[in-house]
């Protein structure tokens, strides 16, 4: 069972699935970072008008399983959408951006991206929040004493440090995004885990199919880990907190 390797065709499927996994996790990481920052700002806002909805969002998305959320978005929410919107989402559209055309993603891709982003953002928001809390209060007082406006205090003093403090846990969340993207196979998105099951169906080489997929996941995590260590060395967090 171990002596047979996978035919190039099936390795190709796995590589293709791996590409989807990487692209999806990268897009989710970017979108979830932006959304997470917004949620964090909402959560720490002095006004309850902002902090309570943010609090509710974090609580709901952090305390329910991603699988159930994905099922809800893909099967449940699309049952609620008006038919016209669904048809529009499902038909390929073409936008020609400057040099290259952008292919319209499948509905699985949209739902997977949407579900993963909303979920990941809730975790990233909390990492940012502890980053902000990690900025010593004295710094803010000092900046205010120097005559900085509240906005300047935020942009020039709090944010840069908070970012640096939250970098390691943030990278942890990006790793989670890669691993969690495996759940989108349940809604038919042809990423790496989906591809490994498909190769298994056609070749019955369970060990090889899962082995290659597992190795690719671990490789990705190692690369993120190394990138994190490199970034950390270049710009260590203030006071080496959160190392």
């Amino acid at each position: 069972m171990l002596d047979e390797l996978l035919a190039p065709k099936y390795l190709g499927w796995l590589i293709e699935g791996f590409g989807v996994t990487l692209l999806l996790s990268a897009l989710v990481s970017v979108a979830a970072t932006a959304l997470g920052l917004a949620l964090c700002l909402g959560r720490i806002a002095p006004s309850r008008l902002w902090s309570w909805p943010a609090r509710a969002w974090l609580s709901v998305f952090r305390n329910t399983p991603l699988l159930v959320q994905l099922f809800f978005w893909y099967f449940g929410a699309s049952a609620l959408m008006p038919e016209g919107l669904l048809i529009w989402l499902n038909t390929p559209h073409h936008w020609d951006l400057a040099l290259f055309g952008v292919r319209w993603p499948s509905f699985e891709y949209l739902a997977g991206f949407f579900g993963l982003t909303l979920y990941t953002a809730a975790f990233i928001a909390e990492e940012f929040r502890s980053g902000v809390r990690g900025v010593p209060a004295g710094q803010i007082a000092a900046a205010q004493a120097l005559g900085f406006t509240p906005l300047q205090v935020w942009l020039n003093v709090v944010m840069p440090q908070a970012f640096r403090i939250s970098l390691p846990p943030l990278l942890g969340q990006y790793m989670n995004a890669v691993k969690n993207s495996s759940l989108t196979m349940a809604i038919g998105l042809a990423e790496l885990s989906y591809a490994s099951r498909q190769v298994e169906t056609e070749t019955f080489k369970t060990f090889q199919a899962f082995g290659v997929a597992t190795a690719l996941y671990i490789l990705t995590i190692i690369v993120i880990e190394l990138a994190g260590q490199w970034l950390q060395r270049r710009r260590p967090a203030p006071g080496a907190a959160g190392a």
Partner: peptide
């Protein structure tokens, strides 16, 4: 810490 839960369950 690196392996997705689904993969470990399959294994």
């Amino acid at each position: 810490r690196a392996i997705p839960v689904i993969m470990l369950i399959f294994w």
